[in-house]
Design a protein around this nucleic acid. Structure first.
Lengths: 322, 322
DNA sequence: CTGAAAGCGCTAACAC
DNA sequence: GTGTTAGCGCTTTCAG
């Protein structure tokens, strides 16, 4: 089923069919005949061939590290909204925080000639060099890339971490712990750094290291880290938790120990999904996931549109909510 | 950057390069030279061209109605596991329960020549006729298709709904309500039908309609439906809720009214994500999302592999957990 | 074991 | 306004 079949049936040339399908100028009569023939034959143009001929595909690849994390699905929603408005489709690829899978998907995006890629890097060292080498539009989102000069959209993680900790100290807590993500992940480092600044100011640096835990940005990691903290000779009375999933785990650990906010101070990065009724007393540093996605898509669409200016970094503001 | 560039650099023909890249028999020397040249040039074969030449692409399209629903992301995880093991990549498309967007993505899958499609239909009337007409492998998952003879993987929704209601009656509750999904969605109908059977047996059909609410499978819908039920002159003392998101909303409404499980009986279809500490006293009808995805992928891979037997429907068992 | 040549389905020059 | 022709990058007969 090709345009030649349609052409034969309509009694015109393949070119004319192509023109009709692409909205170029044709006589009304031709247009009518071609459309009729195409409809009768259930014809669907072959994008593969079209693309091979040189058209960029109207598909954007979005590569995320954890599809089961609502933060990233909200981000995906943002990308989708913006992309769809511009006539692009979005395909999602899940890397499971695995640099090798990430690399595979980057290759696919390249080989499939997607119009551009939005990448929430699994790791500091994510390698987008192939993308850059092929001059394919890329935008990093949520985390920026250490070794590459590409557009990025992030939030002010350090400031968020600092204000989260500050607000706990201001509320009267004195031993404010921190549960952050893997040390190879930028957001984890920055959020922790913010906490460290505030903690050093309010309590001196002496107890800091005791109350800092690196976990894995997952529910179980958060639970375990909080359990460890609570088992300390001098346990914390509050904590800053660096992402939503770990916070869910931390809440479970608290609950198991008979504790809960607001008695135990808790400040969390990112929304706590599907638990708003259990969120009372928790300070949430709202990370605007959807807006991150929208901003990243906007940036990418600019690049796809031909913008070749120097790399830009957009930093969105976090908002603290009670 | 084409195989001709690589061929030139390696001093062989494009054919030989192609052979090396596809693992055909070549002299060790040729192989070495070609690989070296490809590496130096950072060569990535163009899948578009490869596919045009006739190879099926090793990509499976997974079309889901709500990417922010953890049930579907878990399902996606299952599909991915199985597909990756077989060397296929998975791209996710989100329809937002919108038949038109679903249709667009089906067209894309078709036009992009994806190897097959797994569809969690937005609607009873989802139109897969084009897929079927083109003999492209399709598997429906979670919900089956009313008007099409295609493979499907579902769970025993009616039995699950019945046993959920039964266990609430057995626990001593007497006015067991039901909050189900849109009436155009099969799972919503069946889960409700199961509840109706049990309820009719235990309480007579008289009060049934009062205690039945159709909502939209989203958090807000669940909250609102539960609020309405609680405002009834004779409110229910328990409820079967037909999906995870609505259950989260229903819990909020209960909480606002000063109620909570286990005092108010609650049985829910699907896991309650990130809230296991708040899950005490809730009966969960476990819908094995990941297994659904795995089974669907297995079925699809069979079809891609050439299985042309009659359409099969696989029904997985739900498990009730406390 | 390797290469030359013929397309896959489409679109973009370039005639008519 | 419409058709002819020449590829896009790759794989695959078919000879050598």
């Amino acid at each position: 089923m090709t345009i030649y079949d349609v052409a034969a049936r309509a009694g015109v040339s393949a070119t004319t069919v192509s023109r009709v399908l692409n909205g170029a100028k044709v006589s009304p009569e031709s247009e009518r005949v071609v459309r009729a023939a195409a409809a009768e034959l259930d014809f669907i143009p072959n994008r593969t061939a079209r693309r091979l001929r040189g058209q960029g595909s109207a598909v954007i690849g979005l590569i995320i590290p954890d599809i089961e994390n609502p933060f990233f699905t909200a981000l995906a929603r943002g990308v989708e909204n913006r992309a769809r408005a511009a006539g692009y489709s979005v395909v999602l690829c899940n890397t499971d925080e695995d640099p090798e899978r990430e690399s595979t998907y980057i290759d696919i995006a390249l080989a499939e000639h997607m119009a551009g890629v939005i990448l929430a890097p699994a790791d500091d060292a994510s390698d987008v060099s192939r993308l850059v080498a092929q001059r394919r539009p890329v935008v990093a989102v949520d985390r920026s890339l250490a070794h590459a000069d590409v557009d990025a959209v992030t939030v002010d993680n350090r400031a968020g971490g600092r204000s989260a900790a500050e607000s706990l100290f201001a509320a009267g807590f004195t031993r404010v712990a921190c549960i952050t993500g893997p040390s190879s992940v930028e957001t984890a480092q920055l959020r922790m750094a913010g906490w460290r600044q505030a903690a050093a100011r309010h309590a001196g640096p002496d107890y800091l290291e005791d109350l800092l835990r690196y976990a894995d940005y997952r529910v179980d990691g958060g639970r375990q880290a909080m359990a460890e903290l609570l088992a300390l000779p001098e346990p914390p009375d509050a904590a800053v938790v660096a992402n939503n999933l770990m916070a869910a785990g931390a809440l479970e650990a608290l609950h198991d120990a008979g504790l809960a906010p607001p008695g135990f101070g808790l400040a969390v990065f990112g929304d706590l999904p599907f638990a708003s009724f259990g969120r009372r007393g928790i300070r949430v540093v709202d990370v605007p996931a959807r807006e991150l996605g929208e901003a990243a898509a906007a940036l990418l669409l600019d690049r796809i549109g031909g913008d070749t200016g120097p790399a830009r970094t957009v930093v969105l503001r976090t908002r603290e909510q009670k």
